[in-house]
Amino acid sequence: MPAYMIALNRGVHDWKKLDEYWKAAGPSFEGLGAKRLAIYTPLTALEVMGPLEGVVEIEFPDLDTAKRWYESPAYQKAKQIRDGVADTELFIIDGGFVPAEERMPHLKRQS
């Protein structure tokens, strides 16, 4: 099942360094079957918590491949360039559908 990497850019502190990051990060996806679904395309913020400057969405063949990309030396090197340069939230999600009654069981146990 496909997995998706989503990155939310909440703010930029150094545009020159961010450009260096983009140049370094791009090649880290090669050879993994990654599909670039949305890379800083125009967005309409409907329900957000704080500023949102841009979004990236990449599809991977599966969750293991997405994790392998993130942990790769190529991406980790690029990530070092980005650290402190932009306020970024990055996460990987598995594709699919979870029925409502099965969603977030770790939180349901707390209530």
Rank of each mutant, 00 (worst) to 15 (best):
Y70N: 12
D62H: 08
G26R: 13
S72W: 08
G33T: 14
Y4H: 15
I93T: 12
M49G: 09
D64P: 01
P42R: 08
E30D: 13
I58D: 04
Y4M: 09
A100G: 04
L18T: 02
G84R: 06
L107E: 00
Y70D: 02
I6S: 09
E101P: 06
F97A: 05
V56C: 06
I93M: 13
T65F: 02
A74T: 07
Y75F: 15
F60I: 01
D19A: 10
A86W: 04
E30C: 00
T65R: 10
I92E: 10
A74F: 08
R109C: 00
V48D: 06
R82Q: 15
E47N: 01
Y21G: 13
L32Y: 13
Q80P: 01
A25G: 10
M1A: 12
A24K: 04
D64Y: 01
I6M: 14
S28L: 02
I6P: 06
Y70A: 15
Y75G: 09
F91W: 02
Y40T: 12
Q80R: 10
A34H: 13
S72N: 06
Y21K: 12
Y70M: 01
G95P: 03
Y21H: 13
E102K: 09
F60V: 04
R68S: 14
A78R: 03
Y70F: 14
G31L: 09
T44H: 11
K16I: 05
L18Q: 15
V12G: 00
L63K: 01
A34V: 13
F60H: 03
L46Y: 06
V12N: 03
V98R: 07
F60E: 14
R68F: 06
F29I: 05
G26N: 08
A66Q: 05
M5E: 10
Q110H: 10
Q76K: 13
V12S: 05
F91Y: 14
G33V: 09
R68I: 02
G95Y: 08
N9S: 10
Y70T: 04
L52M: 11
N9W: 02
P105A: 07
I92P: 12
G84H: 11
G50W: 03
Y75R: 04
G96A: 05
R82N: 08
T44C: 04
Q76Y: 07
R103P: 00
G33P: 15
H106R: 01
S28Y: 10
P73H: 01
P61R: 03
I6F: 09
E71P: 00
A38R: 03
L107W: 13
P51K: 11
G31C: 14
E30P: 00
A24Y: 00
E89M: 08
D14Q: 08
L107K: 10
A38Q: 09
D62W: 12
P99G: 09
D14N: 15
A34P: 12
G54L: 07
D19Y: 04
V56Q: 11
G50K: 03
M49S: 14
Q76F: 10
